[in-house]
């Protein structure tokens, strides 16, 4: 598979603080990647380094096959970092025209891209009159101008109202459906879960995991169970080798699996042991739970 971005042992120190520590991962064409991590974990710093605005301390990264200089490679990349930055005194169209000049592409796609983000009717309004949601959408339009090989989004829904968040997500989904590689940095797990196929998890500048979302934990999921005889149920679950950790939450017992096990099997076995279940649900961990497990394991 074609590599778009390769990062090798990247490290960044701000004075005595290490923001990114020995980070390595690869972005391949066609996947949607999420970079996950709590606030201040080094996500934005990493993106800043590969986007030429933050100087690395050591390590290296290569765009595409490493044959182009970083700033030439960036002409094939679309990126939005934290906050939309444009010239406040120019209109939307004038700002995009400037981006075209910098990227060295023709200006005939401006209207198309403004259409994609729903700003075509405001193309002649000054940037300073835009709301935050509109500014963010203009930033996406600007990142799409060169039909980029990869779209990098750093916290694209930060500070937006629910409607704005929804709009941005719809746009991202649309772009992902067209087969564009996307790298999405976020601390909002449901956001990443909804669109990403792969994740890179960072905490305090250290990589905890990188790979497909569904292989993040060697986990078989868990059951939520209820019965009229809770103590009996609990003793029985503890005696079964298929179950690992048991947790009592409210009137439910959560039992984590050590191996693959079907719900029907559990129901049958419990009934044979004389326990009648009133509630039985099999679940896979959500990304949030997996994430918390993973970050806690490292403590």
């Amino acid at each position: 598979m074609e590599n778009i971005l390769t990062i090798n042992n990247l490290t960044k120190n701000f004075g005595r603080i290490t923001a990114v520590k020995d980070l390595s991962f690869t972005i391949q064409k066609g996947n949607v990647y999420g970079i996950l991590g709590p606030n201040g974990s080094g996500k934005s710093t990493t993106l800043g380094i590969v986007l030429n605005v933050v100087n690395k301390t050591s390590g290296d990264f290569t765009w595409f096959d490493g044959n182009t200089s970083t700033h030439d490679a960036l002409k094939k990349v679309g990126a939005i970092i934290e906050r939309p930055n444009f010239y406040p005194y120019m209109t939307a169209a004038q700002n995009l025209k400037l981006v075209c000049k910098i990227k060295g592409v023709t200006t005939d796609k401006i209207d198309d891209k403004l259409e994609v983000v729903g700003l075509l009717d405001r193309k002649d309004s000054k940037f300073s009159t835009f709301s935050l949601g509109m500014k963010q959408r203009l930033a996406i339009a600007s990142a799409l101008l060169n039909d980029p090989e990869i779209l990098i989004l750093d916290e694209p829904t930060n500070g937006l109202d629910p409607q704005g968040i929804h709009q941005i997500r719809e746009i991202i989904r649309k772009i992902a459906a067209q087969g564009t590689t996307i790298l999405l940095a976020s601390h909002l797990l449901d956001e990443v879960e909804k669109v990403c196929t792969h994740v890179v998890i960072i905490r305090k500048g250290v990589k905890l995991y990188s790979g497909p979302v569904d292989q993040m934990n060697a986990s078989y999921g868990y059951f939520e169970l209820k019965s009229h005889h809770m103590n009996q149920l609990k003793d029985w679950l503890a005696s079964q080798p298929s179950f690992g950790i048991l947790k009592e939450e409210g009137d439910k017992i959560t039992a984590f699996l050590n191996e693959e096990l079907e719900a029907s099997e559990v129901n049958k076995k419990a009934f044979e042991a004389g326990i009648v279940l009133t509630h039985l649900v099999k679940r896979k961990e959500s990304l949030e739970e997996q994430f918390l497990q993973l970050t806690n394991n490292q403590n």
Binding site: L51, V53, S69, D72, L74, K103
Partner: peptide, 8 residues
Amino acid sequence: QNLIDGLS
């Protein structure tokens, strides 16, 4: 933004 857009 200029740098991200590909100006060195």
